[in-house]
Design a protein around this nucleic acid. Structure first.
Lengths: 144, 144
DNA sequence: AAAACACTTCTAGTTAACTCTAAGTCAAGC
DNA sequence: GCTTGACTTAGAGTTAACTAGAAGTGTTTT
């Protein structure tokens, strides 16, 4: 098993889609701890690829870097913090889910607007009262 | 019909959930054009409530203010820009939808993690290889 | 041995969308 | 008539997460 492949910061950056700047920044913040070789150069492994993948998933749910740091610190404290970590993730998940419902509603709204542009919405099925909205826009258009 | 209710900026701000600062900022950017009374004070109407609602839906799909301004300008140019506006909204919608799929994936990931914390994921059904992830975290936890 | 890349610390700039202050005037509501 | 709120312009501050540059040294690759 040649599992012990090591990557220098530049290669690793390309691999995970982050810049070297960002990787050093994350390290300074405590999010990544690459190893060092005899000359002091950073080396990243396949485990780091997974870890960064995890980071990006957390970030993708809207979790702030400070929260991710908190998670990492809790993990470092061992098994006594398992419930706390679970609850942290649960809060993050709840937030992400309500963000998603919100996004869904906004997409629906904009879809109706597009349908209106396509002439697919008749005035009797027009939930969003586009016509009065358009009337507003007409007044709006008067100005400059 | 007492439809012609008018609101001063402070009232209106509370009504739509924005600050007076933000309303003046939006106005400066060209997103809102409230009317003025004889003394020069801004007055907002019910049409403005709808308009701000629309704005917030657009903003909620990730549309930038500069894009919303572009939309407003297109509308002011009249019916010849209808297709352009439709396509603008369509691009915004596509972006929002792919953002939503991304968010969905991230939520799924985090849900799996929570399940793992709950001990609900057995090692044979573990798609996300949490165990090796945890092994990584163990190594990670070595460092202070 | 030269080019390309990595190391350090420190510091400053970027971006979007606000958010607020100053300073002085004016209007509205009780 | 006093308090609260609105008006103006101009400009500074905030936030998060990068992003970059200087300046000088060391390492790796070709």
């Amino acid at each position: 098993m040649d599992n012990e492949q090591e990557y220098k910061i530049g290669e690793f950056a390309k691999l995970v889609g982050l810049s070297s700047f960002t990787l050093r920044y994350y390290e300074k913040e405590g999010l990544i701890k690459p190893q060092r070789n005899a000359s002091g150069l950073r080396y990243y492994t396949k485990a780091d690829i997974k870890w960064v993948g995890f980071l990006l998933h957390l970030k993708g749910t809207g979790m702030r870097i400070t929260e991710i740091i908190k998670y990492v610190e809790l993990r470092a404290q061992g098994d006594t913090t398992i419930m706390e970590r679970r609850e942290l993730l649960n809060r993050v998940k709840d937030n992400a889910e309500s963000e998603m419902r919100e996004l869904q509603r906004n997409i629906e709204f904009i879809s109706h607007k597009i349908d209106w542009y396509d002439g697919k919405v008749s005035s009797e099925t027009n939930e969003f009262k586009s016509l009065s909205f358009e009337k507003y826009l007409e007044r709006f258009a008067i100005y400059d």
